[in-house]
């Protein structure tokens, strides 16, 4: 229980079913604050399902998710974002019709205080808030070396730039926990290294992260803590070195 109190995220006996398919079975785990955790497992192990349960896109049939000791039961996904959960997606999710800066500013949605009517009438508060947001947005873009592209439509971006933009949008609101769904997927070796450095930087600034990733070299080289899912169950968890040597994990990956 003491462990639960100091944990940023706790899952308690989480079960998730889709009809007859058991996607997650009795998952209980603690994620301490400030760590870069990896969530690994073979295809169909339930990794993305688990991210979706944490951020509220799926409601588990049993069990509970706690963020900083607070139960998220019944808290809709959009309110979880307000509480400090942010995420990226397996296939990058950007609004195609909008430019780079506007896409980034979506990440600041929960920071706005001026209401709809203020914005409708273009009140001075609305203009001030927009100006501040744009400044903050450009700063963020600069941090991820995207500032020169701010006015471009996102369709013109490379996959690497899209991934960067999605990441910068996710961290825009200073989340307490960042969920990353295959941030390295589809990237070249050099880009993977750059992404790892960026994520290391974020951790250095105290950002807690859970990353779903297939690139085992990256996971083993960079993360602090590894969670292994297999057929919807938590097979093992621990530091990368222990996980690498775990016979259960090896057999799950290499197949019986």
């Amino acid at each position: 229980m003491a462990e639960a109190a100091s944990s940023l995220l706790v899952l308690r006996d989480v079960c998730l079913r889709f009809g007859g398919l058991q996607a997650l079975m009795d998952i209980s785990l603690h994620v301490p604050a400030g760590l870069w955790s990896a969530l690994i497992g073979p295809n169909g192990a339930g990794k993305t399902s688990m991210l979706n349960v944490i951020c509220g896109l799926y409601a588990p049939q049993a069990g509970d998710v706690l963020l900083e000791g607070r139960s998220l039961y019944g808290v809709p996904a959009y309110e979880r974002a307000v509480l400090g959960l942010a995420r990226t997606f397996q296939t990058v999710q950007l609004v195609q019709e909008m430019n780079v800066l506007d896409n980034l500013l979506l990440g600041l949605h929960t920071q706005g205080r001026v209401g709809v009517f203020g914005h409708l009438l273009r009140s001075s508060a609305s203009r001030r808030e927009e100006r501040k947001m744009q400044e903050k947005g450009l700063e963020l873009l600069a941090r991820f070396s995207l500032e020169t592209l701010w006015s471009r439509p996102v369709l013109e971006l490379s996959l690497w730039q899209r991934k960067l933009l999605e990441l910068s949008r996710a961290v825009a609101g200073d989340p307490k926990l960042l969920l990353l769904d295959e941030p390295m997927g589809g990237l070249t070796m050099a880009e993977r290294e750059s992404m790892a450095l960026l994520l290391q930087d974020l951790r250095g600034q105290g950002m807690s992260m859970i990353m779903v990733e297939h690139d085992m070299d990256m996971v083993m080289a960079h993360t602090d803590h590894v969670l292994v899912l297999h057929h919807g169950r938590l097979l093992a968890q621990g530091p990368p070195r222990e996980i690498q040597a775990d016979p259960q994990v090896i057999s799950a990956y290499l197949g019986e």
Binding site: Y78, F89, M98
Partner: peptide
């Protein structure tokens, strides 16, 4: 402005806007 950007993200499906709060 902010509510407008949110509106423009709606047709992507619920996944993205909801995760942005």
């Amino acid at each position: 402005t902010r509510p407008g950007r949110a509106l423009r993200s709606l047709h992507q499906g619920d996944l993205l806007p909801v995760s942005l709060g």
